[in-house]
Design a protein around this nucleic acid. Structure first.
Lengths: 168, 168
DNA sequence: TCGTACGTTCAGTATTGACTGAACAAACTG
DNA sequence: CAGTTTGTTCAGTCAATACTGAACGTACGA
């Protein structure tokens, strides 16, 4: 019944490509992430290139991107010169941190605009304050989700921790 | 001191263009939104085109886009055949609803993949469950923010409600 | 009914950026 | 040392899409 598994993997990889693309990331980054969710890995750069049928150059740039986003980590196997990649622990929470950073920048724009506003534009001031408050609420809400996830991680685990190869 | 105001408006319009663009929307949509935050309006299609120095065609498509996102509303002035546009009440909360919709679709992908998974891939199943839970938490968190904003609106106001011109 | 103003849509253009292949640098193997 | 393997980077290509100008349909006014 490996056929069903392969089909499910292929479809999910494709879909994650589209989902990540909708978030403004390269499609291949989504493919990599999707594959790693479906199969634990770790995968070498060449393995990823072959598995996803894309150039090693693309894999290189996209793994670096995902590494910057802290979604994946680069690991090494003893006695092997290749770099290996796998999902980092709590990859989604880490990714969310990046979103929060972007949102803080947007909020900063709003605030600096508000500060540079001449007197008398009280109505504009009010609208900017509303937008500022909205960003604030959103950021705080995100942080809550992240914290919850991190707390989950702290609990040292009644099950095996993610990211450990099973001995079998 | 109108110079300072104009400069602040121009800069904010530009920045909102970049911010919206980073969210995957057309830059001009950001310009429109930015202008409407800085100046209450309402603006006619032609006014927007001239004010932002872009074609009326672009304004037409982008106002329709923002209208679909429920960020702006189309209004009419008695005795004037032109369409006028202004920010809708709670524009940001409404925009957030769209994000939630997108996220629900992503979550659906995860769930349907999980359902179509053959027996034995317990590890994969686990990771998909984690992603599913993450989406769930995020969606719920968003909904909270939206509800808070809506509740704020319900309260008929100790202050002037947004979107109403103050008499002063 | 003709003329005008308005908004939409469509074909074409330009820009952005994802992806590739090739050249390259560094680290290992013989 | 020469030869391989591995990852990165860069120039070039291709596809997606934002934006424009023009043509169109519609509704209003004389």
């Amino acid at each position: 019944m490996t056929y069903k598994a392969d089909k499910a993997i292929a479809e999910f990889v494709e879909q994650m490509g589209l989902i990540l693309q909708a978030e403004g990331l390269p499609r291949i980054a989504g493919h990599i992430m999707g594959l790693m969710i479906m199969q634990e890995g770790p995968f070498s750069l060449s393995q990823l290139a072959e598995r996803l049928s894309v150039s090693r150059a693309s894999i290189s740039t996209n793994t670096r991107l995902l590494e910057d986003l802290e979604v994946i980590v680069r690991t090494a196997k003893p006695g092997d010169r290749q770099d290996y990649f796998k999902l980092s622990p709590q990859p989604y929470a880490r990714m969310l941190r990046g979103v929060v950073r972007r949102m803080r920048r947007a909020r900063d724009v709003v605030e600096s605009t508000r500060d540079s506003l001449p007197e008398g534009m009280t109505d504009t001031h009010e609208r900017l304050k509303e937008l500022d408050a909205f960003y604030e609420a959103l950021i705080e809400s995100f942080m809550d989700v992240i914290d919850t996830w991190d707390a989950e991680r702290e609990r040292p685990a009644r099950q095996a921790r993610h990211g450990e190869r099973p001995s079998a």
